[in-house]
Computed example of a mutant assay.
Amino acid sequence: MSGSRRSLDWGFPRWRSYDATERQATTVRECDRHGCTEKGDCPAPKAPNSPDRWYFCQKHAAEYNSRWDYFEGLDKAEKAERAKAEQTENAGYAEAQHYGWSSGGDGSRSADEMRALEVLELEADADFTAIKKAFRTKAKEVHPDVKPGDAEAAKQFQTIQLSYEVLKAAEERRVWKG
């Protein structure tokens, strides 16, 4: 048994010395935002369809992405086509949207909700009381009882009513989640 020697890698504390490679400092990429010294671990594209990336900290990545326009440089038809393709591709995720963590006013509104808010001429962070008030005001202007026989007014009323129903359903989902 003179040839066997027990390894020093057993038990606690560690009996052998640490390698020099374990003592070397790791490189940490800093945020690409001028003046920021936080860790830059969130990649963001420098331009549409470009492989080049900025690396931001969490705060600056959120700021950068808030102004990012995915459809920049596309004409109206291409925008509509790409939006439809994305919506079709991601339809499976819509089934699980009630598991989301966010609430209204923080960018969690869907595209349908945003269009409904545009119809009612409201901001994205409007609460439900403001939505209800805007709906009633606009509906009174174009209601079929107020403008009988006016086809355009009837169409506007239906659009306003549909917008309100979309926003009401979204509010009910938020209240149910809450």
Rank of each mutant, 00 (worst) to 15 (best):
S4K: 10
R14N: 08
R14F: 08
W15R: 15
R16S: 00
Y18R: 06
D19I: 01
A20R: 10
E22D: 03
Q24L: 08
Q24K: 15
C31F: 09
D32C: 12
H34I: 15
G35A: 14
T37W: 13
T37K: 11
K39P: 14
K39H: 13
G40Y: 14
D41I: 14
C42L: 15
P48R: 12
P48Q: 11
P51Q: 06
D52P: 06
R53T: 14
F56D: 07
A61M: 12
Y64Q: 06
S66Q: 06
D69R: 09
F71S: 07
E72Q: 14
D75S: 12
D75P: 08
E78G: 14
K79Y: 07
A80P: 09
K84P: 06
K84Y: 05
A85W: 05
A85V: 06
Q87P: 02
T88F: 06
T88G: 07
Y93D: 11
E95W: 12
Q97Y: 11
W101Y: 11
S102I: 09
S103A: 09
S103W: 15
S103M: 14
G104T: 11
D106H: 13
R109D: 15
R109Q: 13
E113D: 10
A116M: 03
A116W: 00
A116S: 04
A116H: 00
L117K: 00
V119F: 03
A124N: 11
A126S: 08
A126I: 00
D127C: 05
T129A: 10
I131M: 03
I131D: 03
A134P: 01
R136D: 10
T137Y: 10
A139G: 04
V142Q: 01
D145C: 04
V146W: 03
V146M: 06
G149M: 01
A151I: 05
A151F: 01
E152L: 05
A153N: 04
K155A: 09
K155Y: 05
Q156G: 02
F157W: 02
F157C: 00
Q158H: 05
Q161H: 09
L162I: 00
E165M: 05
V166S: 01
K168E: 05
R173M: 02
R174W: 03
K177N: 04
